[in-house]
Design a protein around this nucleic acid. Structure first.
Lengths: 182, 182
DNA sequence: AAAGACATGTAAAACGTTACATGATTGC
DNA sequence: GCAATCATGTAACGTTTTACATGTCTTT
């Protein structure tokens, strides 16, 4: 298995709960986890092949005989579960924030106040939109917290809500400070 | 110039204020902007060469005659400034959050409460540390806000403070919720 | 004398995105 | 019939990190 390909862990994590196809996995990644992790078909299918070759997952023969386009379900193996657990236990975690918006704000002096205000407003709009969606997710999950599986999901979503609300507070303050020097 | 290499813009942005060597640029990137952007020598030097070839920067002959190791200062050109401005004006900005910690929390159900608590505590410790540093930066800058250049710097640092404080609030809440189901 | 910061650069390896290629099924 | 969605996969391209290679200067 690749040394540091986190996509592998995403796949193992998803397969821990249920057998899925590559296409299913893509849909899961594009769902509520998309705000902190991304993945394309171009990374999922190769990863799936590598994991199968390493014996961490297997193709199941659930492979839909009902004709239609071929459909390959994968299941996690015991060594796959061990691998997942080892990763979860490993204390190191790479948390990477790469915000082009902040870069533009940082270098805003080269463009002037108006341009930076626009940059912040664009950011604010996008975040406000995404926050609305995250809040819907969160509220739906809040009712089912007694289910531990939902709790882990809820925690990541509430992380998103908390940080996005912080972003919006920052936007207001930033706009105020910039307007003052105009 | 490369299609989507943001490192180019970081370099142009830094050179907008003063002439710098590749080594200097690395130091700047590792400073207060490191929490939202990163860059290694392996990306800086090639980028510098590409920018020079495209005429967006030039080697200055300030190149330290005082012997010692060769030292190459770069300066931004007018077309470099135009390029920087076009980028600042461009409304699209890729903001990418890639948090392995959240991935581990999301898949926490496969490992259990204790492991997830450890994951969160590790995150909390690291964030608390970094927050202390960011607050020092912010407080130093807060006194000099009348200088517009400092303001842009201040804004990015205060973004960090705001979000990191949100992270810590989330950590407390997450630990509480996880402890409850133990 | 040794360690560590200063200083530039290259090469290999890994990784990921985008675009392309192919084709079936479902709903309008 | 057509569009959208389902479904798998490959190839080209670009970027970045890591490790390596080389050598100086300054401080202890």
């Amino acid at each position: 298995m690749a040394k540091d390909r986190k996509t592998d862990m995403v796949i193992l994590g998803l397969l821990f709960h249920e057998d899925l196809t590559g296409y299913d996995i893509k849909k899961r990644i594009d769902g509520a986890i998309s705000f902190f992790w991304k993945g394309s078909f171009g990374s999922i299918y190769p990863s799936l092949n590598a994991l199968a070759e390493a014996g961490l997952i297997v193709k199941t023969e659930k492979s839909d005989s009902s004709a239609g386009r071929e459909k390959i379900y994968y299941a996690i193996t015991d060594s796959g579960k061990t691998e997942l657990l080892n990763w979860l236990k490993d204390s190191k975690a790479v948390n990477d924030l790469k915000y082009e918006t902040l870069l533009k704000v940082f270098f805003g002096g080269a463009g002037g106040v108006q341009i930076t205000l626009k940059t912040i407003e664009n950011f604010e709009r996008k975040i406000a939109e995404d926050l609305t969606v995250l809040k819907v997710y969160r509220d739906n999950l809040a009712g089912a917290l007694s289910n531990p599986d939902h709790l882990y999901y809820y925690l990541t979503v509430s992380f998103g809500v908390e940080t996005y609300e912080g972003y919006l507070r920052w936007c207001s303050e930033a706009k105020r400070l910039l307007a003052d020097i105009k």
